[in-house]
């Protein structure tokens, strides 16, 4: 299992070395890697403690001075506490990136306080111009971080980090959407790092996965074409329905001549268990997929 946070800390260390106008705020999280980065750049790596709301305000102030600001914290806390700030200051969020560790059921057994299954839905609801990254591999995360790091003026970016296994399928980060299998019984779209470890090659389906949102409508065309061919689109998403990508696609393709089946967790998953268990309970595992097909 690869902890994507370690890839982030290696990347940010190098980025801070080459970019004086970059600052990392961390919300009392990231031991021990963050401490190495802090030792090197004590002025620009700042522990803001458990102050998620204020930290976003400070980031807005700092970004107004031409800095790129990274906020590293637990996904659920880092987004929901400052929900009002997203709502009010949406126009001022440029050049700010939130690195949310433990997206989806990423914190598993730590419980529902830590689960982040309404994360990018909140951003969509706030109406802010945000790029949501759902890295499916280490390489993809690094590619996505460079997208933010190399551009002069960015929209607000949210990185949803979930620990991933060394992928058995090839992810091409540049594409954001990849097709991994071909078949004709159904079209499957998995959002972020879902089912890729357990995907059954015997399933006779077109399988796509997606690592970034939003996308242009023409980038979604291959999925639409495939669904028209198979007559059935099954979307797997580790996010509640409101504000989800499957909600958007369901609306976009509501008049098309294919059925859309969506698998997603419900609002309050109070069950206790690790991520695999919770995904299974939410119907987001390979067994459920076989049933849908």
């Amino acid at each position: 299992m690869m902890a994507l946070k370690n890839s982030f800390f290696s990347w940010i260390q190098e980025y801070l070395a080459n970019n004086e106008k970059a600052v990392l705020f961390y919300l009392d999280l990231g031991w021990p890697s963050v401490l190495d980065v802090k030792r090197k750049y004590p002025q620009r790596v700042i522990n803001c403690g458990v102050t998620e709301t204020n930290t976003l305000l400070v980031a807005i102030g700092l970004a107004s001075q031409g800095f790129k600001v990274f906020i590293y914290g637990i996904s659920q806390f880092t987004l929901w506490r400052p929900a009002e700030i997203f709502n009010l200051y949406g126009k001022n969020l440029k050049n700010i990136a939130i690195i949310g560790n433990g997206g989806g059921f990423g914190y598993g057994i730590l419980g529902s306080s830590h689960h982040s299954i309404k994360d990018y839905g909140l951003l969509q609801l706030s109406g802010i111009s945000a790029t949501i990254f759902l890295p499916r591999s280490q390489d993809e995360l690094l590619y996505q971080l460079n997208l933010f790091g190399q551009q002069n003026e960015n929209t607000f970016c949210y990185y949803r980090l979930i620990n991933v296994n060394e992928s058995k399928v090839k992810i091409h980060p540049i594409d954001s959407i990849n097709q991994h299998r071909s078949g004709n019984k159904a079209t499957v779209l998995s959002i972020g790092p879902l089912i890729q470890d357990h995907f059954d090659p015997e399933l006779n389906v077109d399988w796509f996965s997606l690592g970034r949102w939003p996308l242009e409508e023409n980038q979604l065309k291959p999925i639409e074409r495939s669904a028209c061919k198979t007559g059935k689109l099954i979307i797997f998403e580790e996010h509640v329905w409101p504000g989800s990508i499957c909600q958007f696609l369901n609306h976009l393709w509501r008049h098309k001549n294919f059925a859309i089946i969506t698998a997603h967790p419900s609002h309050y998953e109070n069950l206790v268990g690790n991520r695999s268990y919770l995904l299974e309970q939410a119907g987001l595992d390979i067994k459920a997929l076989k049933n849908y097909v």
Binding site: T55, V58, Q65, F67, N92
Partner: peptide, 25 residues
């Protein structure tokens, strides 16, 4: 008048960010 306001409790955090930016520069 660098930022909007109206919801109380936002000004000091914004100020901290601006001041930090000035300090680092």
């Amino acid at each position: 008048m660098p930022f909007g306001s109206g919801s109380l409790g936002c000004g000091l955090g914004l100020a901290a960010g601006v001041a930090l930016g000035c300090l680092l520069q």
